[in-house]
């Protein structure tokens, strides 16, 4: 009787431990790659904000400042991102990211969209220092290039 009871207790304990281990394996430490690519997105947003405030005429147009922000954007878009998206860092596998697994299933399309972003950012880098109208005209395509990836490959909010 006592043996049966301790066996049952032992089994329950083992199952509990197994549960804890399983639960733990679902929450691995956040990948530094996720942090790094989110930091890249933050830098995009910061520089876009400088350009956007001018485009929306909420800040006075300043050719020099606009040029700096636009060149930063282009530099960011041209970063080699190949180390930022290791396998297993999608939203189905880990917490803390909105990157859909489709990214890894459609790499040629992702690369094409990244190239479109580089082209839009290069246009902005040329336009931002020219005048306000040129900056405003380059803003839409730049947002569109960002949005193309967000539309296809990002989990809703």
């Amino acid at each position: 009787m006592r043996t049966a009871r301790s066996l049952a207790l032992g089994l329950a304990g083992a199952m509990l431990a197994a549960t804890v281990v399983t639960a733990d394996s679902h929450a691995p430490a956040p990948s530094p790659a996720i942090k790094a690519r989110q930091a890249q997105m933050q830098l995009y947003a910061f520089n876009l904000g400088t350009l956007g405030a001018m485009a929306q005429e909420k800040a006075p147009y300043d050719a020099e400042v606009a040029s700096v922000a636009a060149k930063n954007l282009a530099a960011l878009a041209h970063l080699d991102g190949s180390l930022l998206w290791p396998a297993g860092t999608d939203a189905d596998s880990v917490e803390g990211t909105r990157a859909l697994p489709d990214i890894w299933a459609n790499f040629p399309d992702v690369a094409a969209k990244a190239q479109a972003l580089q082209e839009a950012a290069d246009v902005m880098a040329d336009a931002a220092g020219t005048d306000l109208a040129a900056l405003q005209a380059a803003m839409g395509p730049l947002g569109g290039a960002c949005g193309a990836c967000h539309k296809a490959y990002r989990v809703p909010d």
Partner: peptide, 13 residues
């Protein structure tokens, strides 16, 4: 334009 006040860009549906 799809730009949020924080200059994120709209995604998904």
């Amino acid at each position: 334009s799809g730009f949020t006040p924080e200059y994120d860009v709209v995604g998904g549906h």
